[in-house]
Amino acid sequence: MNIFRFLGDISHLSAIIILLLKIWKSRSCAGISGKSQLLFAIVFTTRYLDLFTNFISFYNTSMKVVYVASSYATVWMIYSKFKATYDGNHDTFRVEFLIVPTAILSFLVNHDFTPLEILWTFSIYLESVAILPQLFMVSKTGEAETITSHYLFALGIYRTLYLFNWIWRYQFEEFFDLIAIVAGLVQTVLYCDFFYLYITKVLKGKKLSLPA
C-alpha cells in the first residue's frame, strides 16, 4: 500500500458516500444517471467475485463489501425507492455500446484466459467508460448540482491517484499491470473536460454549467 493508492481509495469511498447521502438526504436522484450506477454495480460485482475465496487483508475485504453494498443501495434508490425523481428522459446513453465492446475486448486482451480473470478484465475495461452516461446526462441537462460535481470530482480523482500509485509500484515494486494502467488512463482522460470545468467554475463558487 502507498499513499497514492490509499488517497485514491479514500477519494473513491468519499464519492460513493457523497452520492448515497445526496440521494438519501434530498430524497431525490435528479441529475444522477441510473445507467452509470448500474454499470458501477456490474463493475464491482464482476471484479470482486474472489471476495470470499481470496483473502488479502481486512482493509481489502471490508472496502470491497462497502463498495458492492453501496453500489447496489444506490441502484435500488434510483430505480425503486426514489424512482419518481429519476430523470429518465435525460439518461439516454446507450449502455450496450459500452458493455458489448468491453466484454469482447476482455476476451481478446487479458492476462489469463480463465473465467475469473476475464471477468476481472471486463470490470476494468467497463469501469473506464462507466461514467460516460453520467457525463452525457450532465451535458444534456447543461448543468449539474454542486454536490453532484463534487461526487464526480472525487470519482475522477480516485483513478488519477491510482495512476500515480502504478508509477510508484513500477518504481519501487517492479510491478505493473498494463491492462489496469491503460484503462485507468482512458478513464482519467474522460474526466479532463469535467476537471477543467470543476476547477474553473465550481471552485469559484459558480454552478457547474456546460455550454448546452
Partner: peptide, 10 residues
Amino acid sequence: EMEAYSKDEL
C-alpha cells in the same frame, strides 16, 4: 497473454 498477478488492488 501477459502473466496473471495477485489482485491486491481494489
